[in-house]
Design a binder for these strands. Structure first.
Length: 271
DNA sequence: CACGATACCTGTAAGC
DNA sequence: TGCTTACAGGTATCGT
């Protein structure tokens, strides 16, 4: 589920549920996520009022009227469930607010994480320090990507997954953006022309904005807090469509494994 | 140093 | 039907 558009969707849902509310109860049911949960998570959060919810790359953050800021990452299988009808074994943390509602942080694979940091230390948190520009921000320009690709002998697919180059893309949206830009995932990054870089940057922006507008992509579970499915998966151009017809030319979508991840592409449209 | 491979953990689906 | 295997949205770490 969670690349930038899915995390953005979750953050917007949390903002609606939490901004202005106070935590009345926080229950850590299982502390061993990717990193151990802070042992004093509950006592530091209960009584705090949420002032804002935001996102940086694939991290969500929740600012409060205290110095503690909640920072979460959904890993591969993380989600937030609001007022779950029943608690299941993967609901690792339960947050109850002063309106009586409960949000469950659910993560079957436990690749996700949740930390409390001082508000002014967000940028130095491991994982956030060193992140590249936000792809939907003003800092992500063709000139920046052109410089990042210079001399690189790694495939463009791998370069775009490097969070130090641009922060927030994952396997799905890299495949989608490369198809939209007409660039083959196995092209060595350093061989991209300026014209290709000029196409790639707006392709990334377009794909991400469309995905956010659709509420993200759902594979086998919902992504939105209220249980609604994101529906961007119906608009996938190539991801998960091996053997199916390319929506542009009708040719078969191909799959190749790069650095252990599946890449989907059209060999006719992408060069 | 810049790569790719591997490990982390669980669920699901496909193959036999 | 039941068992085994491959694969899955991410990222930190470890070799080469």
């Amino acid at each position: 589920m969670p690349e930038l558009p899915e995390v953005e969707t979750v953050a917007r849902g949390l903002a609606l549920a939490w901004e202005g509310r106070r935590f009345t109860r926080v229950e850590a049911r299982r502390p061993d996520l990717r990193r151990p949960l802070p042992v004093d998570l509950a006592q530091r959060l209960v009584g705090a009022r949420v002032t804002s919810v935001g996102r940086r790359a694939k991290y969500g953050f929740v600012a409060t009227d205290r110095d503690d800021m909640l920072v979460f990452h959904l890993g591969m299988s993380g989600r937030m469930r609001i007022d779950p009808p029943e608690i299941d074994r993967h609901d690792h943390i339960l947050f109850t607010t002063d309106d009586g509602r409960t949000v469950a942080f659910n993560d079957a694979r436990r690749f996700g994480s949740l930390d409390l940091v001082a508000a002014d230390a967000l940028e130095s948190l491991p994982g956030i320090a060193g992140l590249g520009p936000e792809p939907l921000g003003a800092d992500f320009t063709p000139a920046v990507l052109a410089a990042a690709r210079e001399g690189r002998v790694t495939p463009i697919k791998s370069l775009l997954l490097d969070q130090r180059v641009v922060a927030g893309l994952g396997n799905i949206y890299v495949c989608e953006a490369l198809h939209l830009a007409g660039i083959h995932p196995e092209r060595m990054a350093g061989t991209l022309s300026d014209a290709e870089v000029e196409r790639l940057v707006p392709a990334i922006v377009q794909v991400l904005e469309a995905a956010i507008a659709a509420g993200g992509s759902s594979l086998r579970d919902y992504v939105q807090l209220d249980g609604e499915l994101g529906y961007f998966q119906h608009q996938w151009r190539v991801y998960g469509r091996e053997g199916d017809a390319c929506r542009e030319c009708g040719g078969a979508v191909a799959r190749v494994v790069q650095a252990g991840r599946s890449s989907f592409y059209c060999g006719a449209c992408q060069r």
